[in-house]
């Protein structure tokens, strides 16, 4: 299982903070495509990917079991 975290407008659109699914072996790009099929209102094209709390730029990176993934929307802290 891999865990996806949702923040800000994503959390409101999906209606939950996180979900788990059998995504191990998928690439980051495939995980995004899966989420967009499940939740068509999500917007993921402007996000930065984080895996296990570190930014990951490689869309072809394969996710492993127990990875925690977040698609970070444009940040607005400060």
């Amino acid at each position: 299982m891999v865990k996806i975290l949702f923040f800000a407008d994503q959390r409101e659109k999906v209606g939950k903070d996180e979900l788990e699914f059998e995504g191990e072996g998928m690439t980051v790009q495939h995980v995004k495509e899966y989420l967009l099929r499940e939740y068509p209102s999500l917007k993921l094209h402007q996000t930065m990917t984080a895996i296990n709390e570190e930014y990951e730029e490689e869309e072809n990176r394969t996710v492993k079991a127990n990875d925690v993934i977040a698609f970070i929307p444009p940040v607005s802290g400060g």
């Binding site: 923040f7 407008d9 929307p73 940040v75 607005s76």
Partner: peptide, 20 residues
């Protein structure tokens, strides 16, 4: 403002919005 995952939602008199 570039790299820290923090988001701001603004509430106005007549609406609300997550600031991108």
């Amino acid at each position: 403002k570039e790299i820290v995952p923090i988001w701001k939602k603004e509430y106005w008199v007549d609406g609300e919005e997550w600031i991108g």
